[in-house]
Simulated assay, not measured.
Amino acid sequence: MSGFASGSDIISYVAVGDSFTEGLDDPCCETDGTGPVRYRGWADRLAEHLAADRDEVRYANLAVRGKLIRQVTGHQVPRAVELQPDLVTFCAGGNDIIRPGADPDATARIFETAIRKLAATGARIVVFTGMDTGFQPVMRHLRGKVATYNMHVRAVADDYGCDVVDLWGMHVLRDRQAWSRDRLHLSAEGHRRIALRVCEVLGADTPADWREPWPAATPRPWRSARREDLVWAREHLVPWIGRRLTGRSSGDGIEPKRPELEPLQPAGPGN
């Protein structure tokens, strides 16, 4: 498909998905602790890159943390269709795959339904494979299901002419510096690299290389690493299990951060 190279044009972009696309854990600004944190994330960064050399980019982000693919397809996709954008990014299914008893084949059928509806708009569609979880001890057992789902994603992308961002092949994401403290969401630097990767897939200008090696990490003594594991389990794993057992979601009561297509200001240097 044609690239999104620089030019004096106007484009509209809608991001659809869950916490990955909402931007957790990449806070956009400091807060005083009295209100909710607003997240930036790779989709915001992508929109900023696209706006850097265009007359205007109109951007909406419908993604909400914790949503299952059926919820994304049922609520966000119809809204994206209404907005009639030039570009749609769609990433969903991860919250389904990590649940006990998840069926990647059934999840893929819902994925195909969503892409079929989006493709009917004529928009350029970008989809994402799941990441390789082999480097994460807690998530390693899901690797086979993620790989199965990825094969479906690629097949659907071929059928509907979608661009594919291969997160599985992004080896830079296997470094702990790419992840936030909860070990489930990307760090700000992880999001920055994803945005650069999507720009590359789109054929847009990129100000940096997402493959750039990470700075050398400070060695962690064994005792400190185990202490971090205990803190992580208490602050992140136990609450996650609690939500699963009670049927709650981290996205309950959360509204999309950019529900309308609105003009975006260009990104600053180094973003």
Rank of each mutant, 00 (worst) to 15 (best):
S6R: 14
D9A: 09
I10E: 14
I10C: 11
I11F: 06
S12G: 05
Y13N: 02
V16N: 02
G17I: 03
S19T: 04
D26R: 00
E30A: 15
V37G: 07
Y39V: 11
W42M: 07
A43L: 04
A47T: 07
Y59E: 01
N61W: 06
L62H: 08
V64H: 08
V64E: 03
V72Y: 06
T73H: 14
T73K: 06
D86Y: 06
C91L: 15
A92T: 05
I97R: 09
I98N: 03
F111A: 01
D132F: 02
L142S: 00
R143A: 14
G144F: 04
A155E: 15
A157C: 13
D159A: 15
Y160H: 15
V165S: 08
L167K: 04
H171I: 01
R183E: 01
L186Y: 12
E189R: 13
H191E: 06
R192M: 02
C199K: 08
T206I: 14
A208I: 05
A208P: 02
A225L: 10
E228M: 11
H236N: 13
H236W: 14
L237W: 11
V238C: 00
V238R: 14
G251C: 10
R258G: 02
P259M: 12
E260Y: 10
E262Y: 01
P266R: 09
P266V: 09
G270L: 11
G270W: 10
